[in-house]
Nucleic acid binder design. Sequence first.
DNA 1: GATGAATGAGAATTCATTCAT
DNA 2: GATGAATGAATTCTCATTCAT
Lengths: 212, 212, 212, 212
Amino acid sequence: MGASKTPSDRSTPPQSPRKQERRNRDNSVMKEAIAIMAEKGYAATSIQEVADRVGVLKGSLYHYFNSKEELLFRILEESYLQMNAIEAEVDELELPPFDALLEQIRRSSVWFLQNQERAHIFFTETKHLTDDRLTQAREWGRAFERRLSSLIVAGQEAGSIRSDVDQRLLTRFTIGAINNIRFWPSRPGGKQFTVDDLTDGVVLLVGDALKS
Amino acid sequence: MGASKTPSDRSTPPQSPRKQERRNRDNSVMKEAIAIMAEKGYAATSIQEVADRVGVLKGSLYHYFNSKEELLFRILEESYLQMNAIEAEVDELELPPFDALLEQIRRSSVWFLQNQERAHIFFTETKHLTDDRLTQAREWGRAFERRLSSLIVAGQEAGSIRSDVDQRLLTRFTIGAINNIRFWPSRPGGKQFTVDDLTDGVVLLVGDALKS
Amino acid sequence: MGASKTPSDRSTPPQSPRKQERRNRDNSVMKEAIAIMAEKGYAATSIQEVADRVGVLKGSLYHYFNSKEELLFRILEESYLQMNAIEAEVDELELPPFDALLEQIRRSSVWFLQNQERAHIFFTETKHLTDDRLTQAREWGRAFERRLSSLIVAGQEAGSIRSDVDQRLLTRFTIGAINNIRFWPSRPGGKQFTVDDLTDGVVLLVGDALKS
Amino acid sequence: MGASKTPSDRSTPPQSPRKQERRNRDNSVMKEAIAIMAEKGYAATSIQEVADRVGVLKGSLYHYFNSKEELLFRILEESYLQMNAIEAEVDELELPPFDALLEQIRRSSVWFLQNQERAHIFFTETKHLTDDRLTQAREWGRAFERRLSSLIVAGQEAGSIRSDVDQRLLTRFTIGAINNIRFWPSRPGGKQFTVDDLTDGVVLLVGDALKS
DNA sequence: GATGAATGAGAATTCATTCAT
DNA sequence: GATGAATGAATTCTCATTCAT
């Protein structure tokens, strides 16, 4: 009956020196869910599939989250927290606006490149949340935008950023450039670029586009 | 229009002075499908919902397409054909590379802004195709990239486009900027930008970023 | 795979004498659902089971209702409407209060005995409704109670019904007697009582209990 | 109230000062299970919910019972034992049949009113038992009926209870009246009745209905 | 072309129960 | 006794698709 299961099959270790093997599924659940959702999108991702990859029955996954939507929310939240931490780091550098903006672009880009799947989900799947979760996640996005916007406005006031283009357009242009960097490494074949190659690229290009 | 279900349908015109109704239905199917898929994504869009909006029963939709995937493919194909037509128009102008690139950006942006939903689906839902349809749609995207790439390379050779950044990065940067313009008008409140405002913006910014 | 559809396949049945066999499932669905829910209770009744008895796949049942709860509501609603019609009939007789009450008891009892399953569900499963449906169903019950109550009060005022017991107790006692009649025929073995035997019984007993 | 509960069951506690904690948990399990099952019904009651209210994890509950069905059985059994004790008390009074019957009604009613939830479960959820447990619980119900029946028959023979109605109908009428008293206090608003008000009511009404 | 009942597969979720720790 | 992860089966509901009429 059942499909093997026999988790107690061990027989080798007599006492029990490692009491793991249980808990860390939580990480595994997040990891697999992120991988599948990034590839197929939230709606096309089935709990079954996540369970298969984690190696548990689908019902068991509900020990780790209460609903598929909550799982998505957690993924989004983690991403937000990490991106938020990056903002805080840049703040501490107390750079002048334009430099802060470029530093923010650089660090965000690095994070996006190192967390392509998370980043993709963040920009793509928020719409599947509902109610409070949707409200909150949208607020995260807005906060990110507000922040870039205020750096840009400050740069314009300081004269380091061009003023012949409306700050809202500059902001969206910049956000777009950052968001899109997650697609840059995609096409394999041909020599790969390093993360630094890519980030240097965006920073340079966006910098030249925005400077006054 | 709204509800009702075409009450004028039966009995009156014997021959066929209204071949248009058929056409209209067909257009209506595409239109509603685009609206819903842009909003919710392909996977979360149900045929039922499209049928409701069109005002037909679910089963009847299969007179207009053979499968949901084919419907998606048709949407994508239409978009591709229109974007392709734009490329052809730009070609006919026989401009020097950099100018051709900027003109291409401008016209693509206009199209993206006027067809936000289509554009969104194009960049977002291709992954849900399978087999031949997937292969073909991917090829469309690659062709678009190749074309921009060749303009950029030509511009670099002509000295009008910067050469201190790898052409592949310049290409992706440019594509990203175009793709992202579909999000620019989003936030309502505050004065709206016209399509021209926005296109002038991208062209200016990308131009300044790429010029040598 | 794709294509096909073969719309010209028809050819076999020329006229088609019997066009039934399809629609009347609706009655069948209600009937089987009532039987099972009366026996096991709403919560322990599975859609699967209903489908099995109706002879369709479970998914197909959703052509007949939108949710299990709606199915329950429909059963309850039908019962309510029938019981309501009985009240109206009694009203038309324009009897003095006590006689009206007894007539109401008699006719309700007949209905309860002839619709034991429905009646049982009505008194037992309302609690599984939610929101608006719950509110409405509760209101039905309250209306039934209010009506009996007003007949009893009128009887008290007319002197035909005892006044040494609070009318609310008389009302509940009467409702209880009616509700419980659905259990009277239960135990088989021994000679069965006819519906008339049983109704004569309740009317007589409740009448003697209430008369002044 | 209370009564029995068989506190002397297990081997007289040896030492252990806070053996009560255990007892309390056990009581708490019964108490919460009764509350939830009375409200939602057995089938709609989840072990999870009981555990939540008790303040233990789901799995831990299985120290207190072997299965959900056994839990139900225990609830039913407790009720039966208490009702049985009431019968015994009435027996000891050695009253003439009709008086014994009324006394039985009175005391049963008091118990039902003071144990509404238990009583409700008793009359409502027995059907969810299976096999031996079902057989036994049904026997309890039948014994209760048999007893009332024999009092009624004796009353008829003694001439104190009416003989113009078949004793089986009188029995069911009486049982119904007792069973239903658990619903009498329901509707709040307006002045509440005391337990005595209510019991006096049933006894009076049933008495008048049955007397010869 | 349109209808609408039916299919069959699969979705998310719940749940009683077990068991090693 | 208690924990909590896991099971395995079942449950409600959804959906793309078919097809006789």
